[in-house]
């Protein structure tokens, strides 16, 4: 299996088959919080994709070329979260300067991303599993695209749900969780694709 095929396969598998929101529950906080408006879900999805991929590109070399040679791999979590927090700050600042219109869509979601499990979860998961650089980036890309797709679909469904009559006790979050459960069931069906 050539590397390119493995790379593409890793993206597809972490996007669809092993979707982070529906199988590992990463970013479920923002999923429930932001996922009721399609527009804001797009903003959140883009911001997460951006930060996750960049954080992986920065954290992987730090872990493998700095922490391991210095024999302090146990400092990983502290270093990763600092990198992510400062990255979010820098990205926010940069976007604000270069493209105010993009900042308008992404800006308010950026502070939320530091505490989004998806970013730290992917970075930490990559180094815990000892993946190489290419695979780490593929995993980051696939994971965040998967997050994007699911949060967008979820927002579409919830927007439609608003017009329907729902039992009083199920209004709001409970019905949203049932929707998420049904989506997870649908995505379970994709597991056979990896075959």
């Amino acid at each position: 299996m050539s590397y390119l095929v493995a790379f593409l396969l890793a993206i597809i598998s972490s996007t669809l088959i092993d979707n982070v929101v529906l199988s590992r529950f990463y970013g479920i906080c923002s999923f429930i919080g932001v996922g009721n408006k399609t527009k804001s879900s797009i903003g959140m999805g883009l911001a997460v994709t951006f930060v996750t991929v960049f954080a992986t590109i920065i954290c992987w070399p730090i872990y493998n070329f700095l922490l391991i040679p210095a024999e302090i791999p146990y400092m990983d979590t502290v270093v990763f979260i600092l990198v992510i927090a400062s990255l979010v700050q820098i990205v926010g600042y940069f976007i604000k300067k270069k493209s105010p219109s993009l900042y308008k869509t992404l800006g308010i979601y950026l502070p939320l991303i530091t505490t989004n499990c998806a970013v730290l979860g992917v970075v930490q998961g990559n180094t815990d599993s000892g993946l190489d650089f290419g695979m780490s980036v593929a995993n980051a890309l696939g994971t965040s695209i998967g997050f994007f797709i699911v949060i967008f679909l979820f927002a579409c469904i919830r927007e439609r749900l608003e017009g329907y009559k729902v039992p009083k006790a199920l209004k709001g979050v409970p019905i949203a969780l049932f929707v998420a459960g049904l989506m997870a069931m649908a995505f379970l069906g994709l597991q056979g694709v990896a075959g």
Binding site: I175, F178, G181, A184
Partner: peptide, 10 residues
Amino acid sequence: TPVGAFLVFG
């Protein structure tokens, strides 16, 4: 499975 987690929480 994750499905159960969502359903139970809901």
